[in-house]
């Protein structure tokens, strides 16, 4: 009597194959999506960045021409230079200030106060408002003559309040100020982090006679540093793509005097208004590489200023 026992390893390899098939089937939407909506466009945009391309005609290979034009523009302080400067200026102020305000709000909300839910809701609400609607609202708030902000400033004795979006010197500060209104997301993330800090840490510090300020600087902040780094990186990536607000508030022009012409807006103009698609792709790759290197450097050096774990 001969019985054919299935070989255990063959049995396992059969199950492995079944798993592979069902795994591929389940993830197939993502695999197809990655190929069609990410991998192909990624390669194509790199190719277009070496071409003159208007979408209406097939791309024509021009080698490094687009990149050379970019370098020339930067060297001669053209519009590209202006847009890079605007975005860097915006990021350099809005990201750290945004984290600072969010951190302050989170620390306040982490105090044993009544009405926590009410305050948290209030601070969060601006970040769920449709961006176009909040941009229109802020456009009105920033109105030099009749806007709420200048009315308030005149009330507290500022005789000659800024022209905000009408003044090239104040238009970027206006965008930065508006961005601070939307820190609710970061606040909620930081609050969740703060609530995870064990109470014993504070008790020990209190026994040592540390003031609330010292406790915040010496204990809370190091423990929160991974969250702060996360928000910093996300903030920089977000600032590099800040588009809708500036577009709506300046009707897509980046006025006055190109002072709000942010990098993504100039890229959009090149692609869909001037149909310089190749140049737009070169700009996109420049942004991509810049962001990738920046993120990498931040995470690589993170060990120096971020405390992970206990």
């Amino acid at each position: 009597m001969i019985q054919t026992q299935p070989h255990p390893s063959r049995h396992r390899s059969l199950r492995d194959r079944q798993h592979l098939i069902s795994g591929l089937l389940f993830t197939s939407p993502a695999i197809i999506g990655l190929l069609v909506f990410t991998a192909y466009p990624l390669g194509a945009s790199l190719y277009y960045s070496f071409c003159s391309y208007s979408v209406l005609q097939p791309p024509r290979w021009t080698g490094l021409a687009n990149y050379r034009l970019m370098a020339l523009d930067i060297a001669h302080h053209g519009l590209l230079f202006q847009s890079v400067y605007n975005t860097l200026y915006f990021a350099a102020w809005s990201v750290p200030l945004g984290i600072l305000v969010a951190y302050l709000l989170a620390i306040l909300l982490n105090q044993p106060v009544r009405g926590l839910a009410f305050f948290r809701t209030l601070f969060y609400i601006p970040s769920v408002v449709p961006v176009v609607a909040s941009s229109v609202l802020w456009l009105w708030l920033f109105n030099p003559q009749y806007g709420l902000i200048n009315i308030a400033l005149q009330h507290i004795g500022v005789g000659n309040p800024p022209g905000w979006l009408a003044d090239p010197a104040w238009s970027k500060p206006a965008l930065i100020l508006m961005s601070l209104w939307g820190v609710g997301n970061s606040t909620v993330i930081l609050l969740a982090g703060l609530q995870g800090v064990p109470a014993e840490y504070y008790e020990a510090a209190e026994l040592d006679g540390a003031s609330p300020w010292q406790r915040t600087i010496r204990i809370t902040t190091p423990l929160m540093s991974p969250y702060l780094l996360f928000l910093f990186v996300m903030g920089l990536i977000g600032a590099g793509q800040y588009f809708t607000q500036a577009w709506v508030m300046t009707n897509g022009t980046g006025s006055p005097a190109n002072s709000t012409l942010l990098y993504p807006m100039y890229l959009f103009q090149n692609a869909f208004q001037y149909f310089k698609m190749g140049y737009a792709c070169a700009m996109a790759w420049f942004l991509f590489i810049f962001v990738a290197i920046g993120t990498l450097l931040l995470f690589k050096t993170a060990a120096r200023y971020v405390t992970y774990g206990e």
């Binding site: 909506f37 466009p41 945009s45 793509q241 692609a271 737009a280 792709c281 996109a284 942004l287 991509f288």
Partner: peptide, 11 residues
């Protein structure tokens, strides 16, 4: 991590 601008034109 990919900025949407990179894939915008080819899409």
């Amino acid at each position: 991590m990919l900025p949407p601008q990179v894939t915008m034109v080819p899409l």
